[in-house]
Design a binder for these strands. Structure first.
Length: 328
DNA sequence: AAGGTGAACAACCGCATCGTG
DNA sequence: CCACGATGCGGTTGTTCACCT
């Protein structure tokens, strides 16, 4: 795989577009030169973000703010993870696309270090093609695969059944989602089965165990992300594992609960992604006691008495933006 | 070696949304 | 309420490289 950043940047000096803005200044377009990158990077690191048009001007760049923003977000941001997508990331993208569709920014928000543009390109170039190849060999009658589950199934057949389970839960109402009592039966419902390497049932509460590869690759570095390896998240103790629905209710009573450090604060409100409108915050009646150790999470839920009410698709979709999975 | 073609990626464009005066 | 600018997002295009013939 070539490194476009190395090749395309150099090419910019040769083929350079210029457009004029209303103030008659010449604004560059096209690929960014290393010098421009350095200017923007230096300015962003020293002065931080602000109005992008100001940034473009103050950094001495003959670019529009929009272009600077895009360059920063898609390429210069220090927390970006470069390189090929791991198989786990591929699965995650496919799965999230299953649920979210072409909401690349939301998908990207759940893949630390990846940009929406990157994911979109990856989807359009690689995954779509893989799908076509698979669909051509498997189901000659299906000329078009408009259903996301077809796409997922085309790429990773195991998703078909998993998506169906999710779809049943999303499509049907009244309550497609099993009550917590029923949740004691393993794998009754798994909205993110690919994350569910191991499903532990612990006193009636299911936990998802993170694939360590994902946890390590995406969050176990020194970039301030939590190391989620071996992390377990209570099904409803946090909206990490399930995009909670508007009408869902959760009750915990008398818990001695070592919460996911960034998932639930002491009031049972979501603090994972700074979303005050968290899907849980308005519905959760939990009263969690959070122990001092916040570095790990979800290891010590005891006596949980969780209850889930009704679930609905609309609520799910509304809540997805705040669903904090891998959202840092 | 030269040309064609597709893959991969960067960047642009247009539109929607949001905040502010 | 409206206008306007800034920002965000998704679709699309443009560019380069690698591979194949």
């Amino acid at each position: 795989m070539r490194k476009p950043s190395e090749t395309m940047g150099m090419a910019m000096g040769i083929k350079e577009k210029v457009s004029s803005n209303p103030h008659n200044n010449k604004l560059r377009k096209g690929l960014w030169s290393p010098e421009e990158d350095e200017k923007l990077m230096r300015y962003m690191l020293t002065s931080g973000q602000g109005c992008w048009s100001d940034i473009a001007r103050n950094a001495g760049l003959q670019r529009c703010g929009k272009s600077c923003r895009l360059r920063w977000i898609n390429y210069l941001r220090p927390d970006l993870k470069r390189g090929a997508f791991s198989p786990q990331e591929e699965e995650l993208i496919v799965h999230l696309h299953n649920i979210l569709g072409n909401r690349w920014s939301q998908i990207a928000a759940r893949l630390p270090g990846r940009t929406d543009n990157e994911i979109k390109n990856f989807w359009n170039s690689t995954l779509k093609k893989r799908l076509k190849m698979n669909s051509a060999t498997s189901s000659p009658n299906d000329s078009e695969l408009s259903d996301p589950r077809d796409i997922a199934a085309g790429i990773m057949p195991s998703f078909q059944a998993q998506y169906d389970v999710l779809a049943r839960c999303m499509d049907s109402s009244p309550p497609p989602f099993p009550s917590m009592d029923n949740m004691s039966a393993p794998n009754q419902f798994d909205p993110f089965p690919i994350l569910n390497n191991r499903c532990d049932t612990w006193e009636g509460v299911e936990f998802f165990t993170f694939p360590s590869s994902i946890a390590q690759a995406s969050m176990g570095d020194n970039s301030g992300y939590m190391n989620l390896e071996h992390a377990k998240v209570g099904l409803l103790g946090s909206d990490f594992s399930v995009p909670p629905l508007a009408s869902s209710t959760t009750t915990t009573e008398g818990n001695n609960y070592r919460s996911m450090g960034c998932g639930m604060d002491g009031k049972g409100e979501n603090s994972f992604s700074n979303n005050n409108d968290s899907c849980l915050s308005n519905t959760t009646t939990a009263s969690f006691k959070v122990e001092d150790d916040m570095s790990g999470f979800g290891n010590n839920l005891q006596g949980a008495n969780l209850r889930i009410g009704e679930w609905d698709l609309e609520g799910l979709m509304d809540d997805l933006p705040s669903f904090p999975f891998l959202d840092f």
